[in-house]
Design a protein around this nucleic acid. Structure first.
Lengths: 230, 230
DNA sequence: TATAAACTGTCGTCTATATGACATTTGAGT
DNA sequence: ACTCAAATGTCATATAGACGACAGTTTATA
């Protein structure tokens, strides 16, 4: 991957952009570029932590499986997103599976390099703490959402969040459309494909979104946000 | 409060017990004891962080309100639990309201003292990071639970977690019974009082719990755990 | 271009759970 | 001991959403 586009992707992460220059530079310089094919496993739940990762292109699905084998999607890590710090920071195993979706390029900092870096620079803990705080806050929001929003509300909220994530990507790929199946959305909000379809049709009729095969375009974000207020 | 019982309560927090002696000692020495009456507000959602808190006796309800005024309970902080670090570490406002339930004694470290302590001892960030990791993992569990367990499963899981929390308290008060209304349990699992009552009756008939006015005693934890496996 | 696989749209049915109503029980405060 | 507010137990009713079925559509690939 060329230097310039990589820096642009990195710059679109609010967390990464907030880092002091020295930390940002050291972080990137210690990382290795890796290219993964579609549906590769980065790690499974309960694995020991092997590193800290940033997605550069493609997408990584973060999910768990129930005893019955149903997949529960927590989120997708999109270009610019960093993840994997939890297991590194508390020494406990991974909380979720991580699978690529499509050809995916990542930056990876090995566990060893991560710990060496932190040991030599205690003051940088502050920045990883902030990343953890973001995760807690996002999780709290999600708990509130599932507690008091209808599935319509939850779906609107998730569509908005996915779109936000995509926009780090410079709208290059998909003319600003979300590329995602209705099935996957159902797994995200713990619902069924049929119900998601019904909700999406309803939103389309109301003019809030446009629907294509495996593509969703958000047309009226204010209304969508209104439907997902808590 | 006397020194000895306080130390015993503190010792029952896995997080606090894992701290290096120097940090534990400094933390406690910088805290101030406060006694609060029933239903006092420690802080509201969106307040700026004012401190880091440990419950010594009583209980603190952590909750949010929907637009319609319904209260969503995230959890209760019980004796030995520390909380409030999120806003302190990322400088953003509080995520939830915090109300006392019953006369409640707390240790409180002011925001200023917290930041001074960390500024002077960067290496202690590691321990607050671990606390954050616990929050993230607990939140992830809760998201999975609401996603794939029936209300019965969710309720069993929450009863077990509440009981675990209580046992830090040396079973002094309540002969090991949970003192909580069915209404509150409904707010915890985002359900209705009537449904919670039906589930509890069912668990009682099966011999897994015993029910009294505002009290629940867990009789068969293995079976309860079985009902809440994911 | 043909074929298969993945995805979508739309039924009808069934079940879990919310909600309102109301009687009963319990415990706290006087 | 009495009174009242809070909590509990139990209905009956309404409804959101899961799930199976199946036809239609789009894309990938041979």
């Amino acid at each position: 991957m060329q230097q310039q586009p990589m820096l642009e992707i990195l710059a679109h992460s609010p967390w990464f952009s907030s880092l002091p220059e020295t930390l940002a530079a050291e972080l990137v310089s210690l990382c290795k570029l890796k290219t993964l094919a579609d549906q590769q496993v980065l790690h499974k739940k309960n694995d020991l932590a092997d590193g800290f990762v940033c997605v550069l292109s493609g997408r990584i699905r973060i999910s768990n499986y129930t005893l019955q084998g149903k997949e529960l999607i927590l989120t997708w890590m999109q270009p610019g997103n960093w993840f994997g710090e939890i297991s590194l920071l508390d020494g406990q195993p991974r909380t979720h599976d991580a699978h690529t979706e499509g050809k995916t390029v990542i930056l990876k900092l090995s566990a060893g390099a991560f710990h060496t870096m932190l040991r030599n620079n205690n003051q940088w803990y502050a920045h990883f703490s902030r990343l953890l705080c973001q995760r807690v806050r996002a999780s709290f929001s999600q708990i509130d959402e599932t507690g008091c929003l209808s599935l319509t509300g939850q779906l609107c909220k998730r569509l908005l969040l996915l779109q936000q994530g995509l926009e780090s990507e410079h709208c290059v790929n998909s003319q600003n459309k979300l590329r995602i199946s209705q099935d996957a959305l159902a797994q995200l909000i713990h619902s069924s494909r049929q119900t998601v379809n019904k909700i999406l049709q309803d939103l389309r009729v109301k003019g809030l979104i446009d629907l294509k095969y495996r593509k969703i375009q958000l047309l009226d974000r204010d209304k969508l946000a209104e439907l997902s207020r808590i």
